[in-house]
Design a binder for these strands. Structure first.
Lengths: 127, 127
DNA sequence: CTCGACAGTTACGATTTGGTACCTACTGGT
DNA sequence: ACCAGTAGGTACCAAATCGTAACTGTCGAG
């Protein structure tokens, strides 16, 4: 995974900053938010479905991300030992708490995007 | 920087997911949130001050992160060509929009942390 | 009888990353 | 005279990361 907090101690001075480390370490994986986003938008999905949806991710990465998210308790893995095996991933309640944050983030992102578009338009007009 | 969206097309199906890419690409840098957090908590700071505060970061990383954040318009760099030079970094209004999100995130992070502590305690008691 | 799908795992290899050490140029302290 | 600090830049190198390709085992389809 991406190394967020380095080998050296992350410092605890702030106090409030520390819990963030944990949460950020997960969200920061390359595809993580994409996966959570998909799980939340399209509901529980199977491995192959998810892989097709996230388009571009390798099976390896997807597996790794899913394991990480599962380990963090954000998603649930339902394995049915049928032949062929059926594995369904879904967000846990804890996972859903996260998309509150993602929504806020998206809100800001969208605002910035439209602001940038507006500025660009204004600049072009002024020039 | 950490590669969030891979070489392959990030897919635009969702529509709402795309602006996030931009914003996440920044936040996901190793120390990024730490820096923003410090800037917001302790106010505008000079390079060395920040470096001491973030404790463990190398000058190289700090410089790189600050440049990225500056380029994204999240922080402002005030260079006074005194001897010795004095460079002060501060959050821009746009940067402050972000810490709304960080607060929400911290909120969740703190909740999880206390939940985990509670669970741990319960488990120990049950055992 | 061979091929594809399912849900992965493993090995290998290239790229990227981030740390360390060393450099700038100037000043103030001892 | 020499060292520390200010704000970095640069080169090199080890380590981590991520993609690709090949493998697991069983089933149904062709």
């Amino acid at each position: 995974m991406t190394q967020i907090t380095p080998s050296a101690a992350p410092a605890h001075e702030g106090g409030a900053a520390c819990p963030m480390d944990y949460i950020l370490r997960m969200l920061m994986g390359p595809w993580t938010t994409y996966i959570v986003y998909n799980l939340r938008t399209y509901g529980p999905q199977r491995f192959g479905e998810l892989k097709r949806r996230v388009a571009g991710i390798s099976a390896k990465m997807l597996t790794e991300r899913l394991r990480t998210l599962e380990g963090a308790g954000l998603i649930k893995r339902d394995y049915e030992a049928t032949i062929p095996p059926k594995v369904t991933y879904s967000l846990t309640p804890r996972g859903h708490e996260l998309d509150e944050v993602l929504e806020k983030l998206a809100e800001v992102a969208i605002r910035w995007q439209s602001e940038d578009r507006a500025n660009k338009g204004a600049e072009l007009k002024a020039a």
